[in-house]
Amino acid sequence: MTQPTYAPDLVEEAVLLAEPTAPAASAQAFRRERDRIYEIVDDDAREASFRSLHLRWFARLGLHRVIDQVAHQRVDVADRVNVSRVVRALTRQDEGADLVDEATLDAASPTPTLVLRLCPSTLLRPDALCTLLHNELTHVADMLDPAFGYERRLPASEDGPSADNILRDRYRVLWDTTIDGRLTRVGLAGPTERTARWREFASAFAMLGEGCESAFEEWFNRTDPTHAGLVAFALTPPQLANAGKPGRCPLCRFPVASLDARDGGVSPATEAVIRAAHPAWRIELGLCSQCLDLYEARQPSCA
């Protein structure tokens, strides 16, 4: 992989955001130089000067450092992509890495291009950036690894969009679990990431009950996950394999993988609230976790 190229708007915004924390003398020098560029009459020349100024200060402020370091460490990705581009993400949700297939442009070298989408403010937070990059690049490494066998689409469900969402969520949680497991073992992620993944896993696979923790351990420790393996587990976790298709919550009628199984079950007060809205409902019928949360919240406060 060659040196990444940075989108000018990302570079400029990152430099402007970093300026207030730069030493006063360099901030003033930067401003003096930048102010002068406004005087250039020719549009193209002015634009070019702004770009080169911001790029120089981007380097001077070391805003590229983390990306360079991580790219250097990740030979597993670097060797398999062509060039990489770093562009501006508009929201934090939008941040991430993608592979853009530019094979059609040059059939002889079907190496994809790596595109990183980052918010300018993330460039100013080295630790968060490092974690994000390693995570994203591991996704990319999997996608590029023939042994992983990545496919863009997940199998569609007959149960409609909410079942598709459940599958997509479970797949994401599983994949992230294996990634943070792998990163933890090489010292690139820590207990914070592990706890976060465990929380997600426990909620996505609550139907596993007591087996949930051991399943998490197994996925967290797996060294060679495959796309097909992730999909298979996400589609029918072992406990459900015999139980046929996922059912529906008797209250909201949404398809769910499992009904709520938390300790303590439904309190009498909550039961009363549910019965007021659904007279035909009985406690043995169960309900999904979302409905339980909802009706618990609707209980008249007795404190």
């Binding site: 929201t91 996704h139 994949w175 976060a196």
Partner: peptide
Amino acid sequence: MSYHDPEPEDP
């Protein structure tokens, strides 16, 4: 594909 905690800035 990336993962995130719930994002308070997402409308």
